[in-house]
Amino acid sequence: MEVTIVNDHRFHMDAQGRIWTSTNHDYSFWQRYLVAFGKVNVTARCDQVGQPQPGWLRADGPGVSFTPLVKYIGPQQFLQKLPALFIQVLGNVRRSRMLVFRSTSILLFAYYAALQLSPRPYAMELIGDPDDLFQRGQVGGRLGKVFGPALVWVMRQLAWNSRGNLYVTRHFLQQKYPHRFKREFGISDVMLDTGAFSEHRSFHQGTLSCIMVGNLAQPYKGVDVAIHAVHKVSRHRPIRLTIIGDGQLRAGYEQLARDLGIAEQVHFLGSVPSGQGVRHHMQQADLFLMTSRAEGLPRAMLEAMAVGLPVISTAVGGIPELIDDRYLTDMDDADQLAAQLLLVTPEELQAMSQQNYKKALEYGDALLDRQRLTYFTFLRTEAQAAG
């Protein structure tokens, strides 16, 4: 039996038809579904490339195939290409025995309409809240603000009427996008094997080394806020910020650091291979910063906590489920973040480290894989019952 997974992530297809990812969602992520299904087909946008770049990871493999969607970027292109896209989506729906939506994007409009014409069993995997992304103008500009309320409504309808829902949070997304029969599974999609954990850290006076991890293609990660906060702190104590991630906004952030006179304190590493590549840099840092304007339950934060890294973050999405309220800041408040960074001591960092490590243990693969097996088995049973 095959499961069809609709995903927002943009992949790369090389000249041989192989699928690659420059960040996460590699083959090991999709392979997890094979414990319950014979085949996995991922439906997503795929950019054509000649050859993969160093550090890219294969996303397809034995049992996992991809169906490239009609390519579009942003709401305007979505509307322009909607006729061709809808024909493709309707065909995908009609061929599927079980659909899984891992999407918080306008693509759901097309699938919602297709399901009205050709009902199929489906499940929702709620990984974020479009209310934050679109209505606050973080994605899609003016059109995004128009699409936002409608997309929230569509997601609520899909979540309410699905065969069952997986949520990466334990409370936040469940309250906003409930299931009518409470067929709800609260399971993070982070992947933390035993090698992802390291408990022992030490903190000293001196330069405060901070790190951020995120896609720099959209403004919702709030990198500008972090840079402004580092500028304010640098007047009073030595500080360094390392930023992992790449995207079209990187050049603007680099210019901002130069304009503020802190280019030597802010280091942009670009894309770094997930897993050990990112962990290596986390283990060299004193503090993980999350200045996002929208999140579900960020994997990068849990990866940082697993290596005992203290965290200061905005209080968005499911983040308050992970860390103490004392280390939460308001969105877009560089002054508040700077005040936190100025006051933190080595002793407090040590206490934060121990607390975060213990919390991350709740998200280890050994525990989550058992929960995922229950969820995947549920999906297969629902698909079989639907015929």
Rank of each mutant, 00 (worst) to 15 (best):
G318K: 09
R18W: 02
L309G: 03
I87F: 14
A150Q: 12
H236T: 10
N356R: 03
A251F: 05
L143V: 09
P320A: 05
G50D: 14
G164S: 11
F11C: 01
L126M: 14
Q265P: 00
Y27T: 00
Q384R: 13
V230A: 06
Q218W: 08
A44H: 07
N92C: 04
H280Q: 14
W153E: 12
G63H: 06
V35W: 02
N41T: 14
T291F: 02
D26W: 09
L341K: 09
A229L: 08
T242L: 02
R370W: 03
D131F: 11
G140R: 07
R235V: 01
K182D: 15
M352S: 04
G270T: 10
R170Q: 14
T67Y: 11
T194P: 00
L90Y: 13
E125C: 13
Q265W: 01
L256I: 07
N41I: 08
F203S: 00
R142G: 06
T381Y: 00
F197N: 04
S313T: 03
D60V: 08
N7G: 00
Q284R: 13
N356Y: 09
L373C: 08
A226Q: 03
L173A: 10
Q175W: 04
Y220K: 02
I319A: 03
E295G: 02
E199H: 01
G296T: 05
R170G: 13
T23F: 09
G318I: 05
M212L: 12
T377F: 03
A15C: 10
Q51K: 15
H236F: 13
R240G: 03
